[in-house]
């Protein structure tokens, strides 16, 4: 009982319960849910999104967010197309594309941490740049062939019946869970997000910490892009569409906050699982896309209102609002 109570107090509680509720609902309502095909499509949607959500969660913990991950993911997929069609081997393609994602992340970090530009404006800016660049590159490979066998294996290959992408995601889950809890760098994210001014007084290099979180997020977005296009076997102009919103909603559902200072990797994964199960339910129930948007929008607003209300209450106590 005490175990249950302490679990209920955890930030991940809402997302975990929501996931279980959705699974129950899906089991009762749709016969297709417990099928191998459905699990494969769930994995394909969860793995890349969760990989990015780990980065987004790190950003939320230190009080920031990144709206450019969708275009970075898209750009990464299209770069894969260019390199693949140009005959580059996989061990050249993957590092180069990861490097590109890292570079975008560093640009975001530079704009926000160093030049102190509002994260909303800065990352919408890089989103536009990334999207425009991706579309320019896309024009040159439009209608290209399939990827090489080795690259497709990255998306199609399985170990113990589970996709490589999912294994990579689980490895990152373990890594981020450890780093956020047991390393100084990880804990510093919580200090900076909890009280920026005070963290500076403690001698933390707050700007470097924020920069690092942005850089990591860019890197993870390109990794997600690689895995996504490898899975569909060719580059696509639709990769990553809207994924920045999905990730943010997922992270807040999973216990993150726009005010910063809290969140976990498990929460990010649970949030993404919730979003994917929800889409899964929409599809299995053949719900109209318009209605889907309404529901997702409602969830976003509910979550943000709850998050915002708690922050407002605190501000009122200290007389700032």
């Amino acid at each position: 009982m005490t175990l249950l109570k302490s679990f209920a107090r955890k930030n991940e509680f809402v997302s975990a319960v929501s996931c279980v509720a959705l699974v129950v609902l899906l089991t009762v309502k749709g016969e297709v849910f417990w099928t191998a095909g459905n699990f494969e499509s769930l994995q394909a949607s969860i793995a890349p999104t969760a990989i990015m959500a780990f980065g987004m969660m790190a950003l939320l913990i230190c009080g920031y967010f990144d709206l450019s991950i969708s275009s970075t993911m898209l750009l990464a997929g299209i770069l894969c197309g260019h390199l693949e069609y140009g005959g580059a081997p996989i061990y050249v393609t993957v590092p180069l594309v990861l490097l590109a994602g890292f570079a975008v992340g560093c640009l975001n970090g530079f704009l926000v941490a160093r030049l102190r530009i509002n994260a909303l404006i800065a990352t919408i800016g890089t989103q536009y740049i990334g999207y425009g660049a991706a579309m320019l590159l896309w024009d040159k490979i439009r209608g290209g062939a399939k990827f090489s066998e080795s690259f497709i294996l990255l998306g199609e290959g399985k170990m113990l019946g589970v996709y490589y992408a999912t294994w990579i995601m689980l490895a990152l889950l373990a890594f981020f869970s450890f780093a956020l809890k047991y390393t100084s760098a990880g804990r510093q994210l919580y200090f900076v997000g909890g009280n920026r001014e005070a963290s500076r007084l403690m001698g933390f290099n707050d700007r470097r910490i924020i920069f690092g979180a942005f850089a990591a997020t860019g890197l993870l977005a390109s990794l997600a892009g690689i895995l996504a296009v490898a899975r569909i076997q060719s580059p696509s102009q639709y990769t990553g569409g809207g994924v920045h919103m999905t990730c943010m909603i997922a992270c807040v559902v999973g216990g993150g906050s726009f005010a910063g200072g809290r969140g976990s990797a498990v929460g990010a994964l649970l949030g993404v699982a919730f979003m994917s199960l929800l889409t899964n339910m929409f599809n299995l129930l053949e719900m109209k896309p318009q209605l889907q948007n309404v529901i997702i929008g409602l969830i976003l607003v509910t979550v943000i209102v709850m998050d915002g209300y708690l922050n407002l209450k605190k501000l009122r106590e200290i007389g700032k609002a």
Partner: peptide
Amino acid sequence: ELAIFENLTVAE
């Protein structure tokens, strides 16, 4: 004005 981290534990 307290330089504290309400989101973290006493120990941290």
